[in-house]
Design a protein around this nucleic acid. Structure first.
Lengths: 263, 263
DNA sequence: TCGAATTTGTGCGTATGTATC
DNA sequence: GGATACATACGCACAAATTCG
């Protein structure tokens, strides 16, 4: 007894997926038209359309009405979050810019700052009281003009308020670490919390993702600390399959036995 | 001029998504039947079924044939990758076990080791020659009996071959760092490279995910280093929306200006 | 235990809208 | 403008699993 055979639409999905992943169908290539697929497999429009819907959901193809279905470009940007050299960039380019250029993309970004009262969840992350004022900055990053990253940053005004670096994008210095250094706040670590989920409608719009397929994003919650004090927290959103996040973490030389392990 | 209004199936998706995320429909709750949704909205079976397919793809609901559609449990496990105290757990529990217990889940796992020649990509990650022998270990982790993590580990036999820790799961010591310590190899850092993608069919089976919805996974490539030498590399796969990965990275005190920043 | 009703899963055919070529 | 191709939408039929009397 072999297991039950898969439904027909699944067979179409598996066949096309394999042809795409194997490279037989390269990014930019046009798939056979729906009519051709119907004839080749002998299935109804329903089956073929359903299969193509699923492939869109997997991010492997995109449909262009009036034209055809095409294999999507799945080139990935790499984002590196190291401890090494993290402070070396005062007055220099951002990580986003460097990583974009590393893959031959032209980086650019938009930003907008304003003062708002902290939402409960934000206050919790920053260790402040709800309604305490924070500097809220909204970023959208683009590579070759294509939106590729969103970020929403929150900084307690108890730290930066009234200083030259109060507005992240208006002062003489770029980057959280450098700006905090400038006002005598020494950042010594950051924590990033990562998960993946379907894009919310607004995110799909901002990242110009296909709203139909339910594309997934990587969501990062980052918090910078100076000692026990949180000095900035941000929500960062990436198109899931267009990014690789790299972390390099040192392992301490030795200390008395207890418990912990990366499994 | 307001923008064009969304298609009908999208309106159904947006409505149900909102009701689920707001908590009006809680995990385990049964959605209205397809027939009820048809009558409530006045749409055809096609629209309602398509909308429910998309919600399945977003991981928000699961369909049970003969029964109904139900709101999925989206409780997340948290996996912490610190530098601090990483070596303190000699002879103790794994991170997976600790994190499982932290959310009240009973941890267990299966593993299987054998010696194989390194594939080109594996060899590259380990800095060895293709076809050099490596110890290959396949893990499946479960929380309360539910598969929740897969891992495929590779260790060069030039390092562990012939030692008491050659077979990861048979020696007296558990955990890569402790085992390497035991044979005098001092791990001083690890690198993790993260991305997200649809589950491959085999992964969906091993993790018991719904094959129909195209569920997404988080894929991590981890490599442990002792100095410049890679001593282990592993591919780790998590059900995407069931996990949060946490990284704490120290920031060096100071060094001469150059370039780098976490954007 | 059995059968009938219910509910989702798979599948067929068709029609119309809209963008592209 | 006409032909082509995908997007949205309607209605129907049957299979398969569950539920319940």
């Amino acid at each position: 007894m072999t297991g039950k055979e898969p439904p027909n639409y699944q067979r179409v999905v598996d066949d096309l997926r394999w042809r795409i992943l194997s490279g037989e169908l390269a990014p930019g290539d046009k798939l056979p038209t729906e009519k051709e697929l119907q004839q080749r497999w002998g299935f109804s429009t329903t089956i073929i359309k359903h299969a193509l819907t699923l492939l869109r959901g997997e991010g492997l193809i995109e449909g262009r009405r009036g034209s055809g279905n095409y294999v999507r470009d799945r080139t990935q940007l790499v984002r590196r979050a190291h401890s090494r050299d993290l402070r070396k960039r005062i007055g220099s380019t951002s990580l986003f810019a460097r990583d974009s250029e590393a893959v031959g993309k032209r980086p650019s970004w938009e930003s907008d700052s304003k003062k708002i009262p902290a939402a409960p969840r934000t206050a919790e992350r920053l260790g402040i009281q709800p309604e305490d004022e924070v500097m809220y900055t909204k970023y959208r990053y683009l590579a070759d003009g294509i939106p590729i990253q969103l970020a929403y940053s929150y900084e307690p005004l108890t730290i930066t308020g009234g200083t030259p670096v109060e507005y992240p994008e208006q002062g003489p210095i770029v980057g959280v670490i450098a700006r905090m250094d400038f006002i005598g706040v020494a950042i010594d670590r950051f924590v990033e919390e990562i998960t993946t989920r379907p894009a919310m409608p607004e995110e799909a719009d901002a990242l110009e993702l296909d709203r139909r397929g339910g594309m997934w994003v990587i969501a990062v919650e980052r918090t910078y600390f100076a000692g026990q004090t949180a000095v900035e927290t941000a929500d960062i959103v990436f198109p899931g399959d267009r990014y690789r996040l790299v972390y390099e973490v040192p392992v301490d030389p030795w200390s008395p036995p207890d418990e912990t392990e990366v499994s």
